[in-house]
Amino acid sequence: MIALEFAGVTKRYGSRPALDQVNLAVPEGGSVGLLGPNGAGKTTALRLALGLARPSAGSVRMRGRAPSDPQSRAKIGYLPELPPFPRRMTVGRFLHLQAALCGLDGRLARREVDAALELTGVRDRAPERLGSLSKGLAQRVGFAQAFLAQPELLILDEPTSGLDPLGIREARDWVQAARDRGCTVVVSSHVLSEIERTCDQIIILHSGRVAASGSLEQIVAPGETLEDAFVRVVRS
């Protein structure tokens, strides 16, 4: 089963194409890293997958459904870049509401929220307002909300942004734990080492097109690092 599929997807902002005839398929249980220079279309691709923007041409299917269908987002965990939290809400209230929107009730919701707070190390921040959190803590809360309700597909946009080295290592472990339970992971990042450690498939976007895709072994030539391969693909 395909978790996320783009078929001939083009997205234009005015006359500028942000994505141009993109085809990609993420199998269930897979982990895919979206790489690309700034403006390559990585975030646009994630927005299209979540139904936040509409493709100008082509079609997007998430777990077999159109993104406009709310059920396509059931069992999805999404971490946007620099999570845009409602500033006046407390961490605890925000996570409880997110859990409730995932369909969890009462005790089950409390248990899920407690587990997510515990996992991401922000349990003692539950009564604090989201607007008062530092960048790193906000990112941890972002992970906590993405991990609620045992997601089957995780979509992470620049997941290590704002985290310290310890946090980066922890985040890697959280994502790996999700993968171990069979969760599909799609990560968009500039940090090549993170992609290298987290993903088994790589898609390099450049100027809105898929410049290269495949496993690490297929993309990285012998004697090359992922960075070398990335630069080679983008420059060519």
Binding site: R73, I76, P80, P86
Partner: peptide
């Protein structure tokens, strides 16, 4: 307001139409 502070994205990423 939720559109301008972008928090709307977090609600619409859930199964909410």
């Amino acid at each position: 307001e939720p559109i301008s502070d972008r928090s709307v994205v977090l609600w619409l990423a859930r199964p909410v139409s």
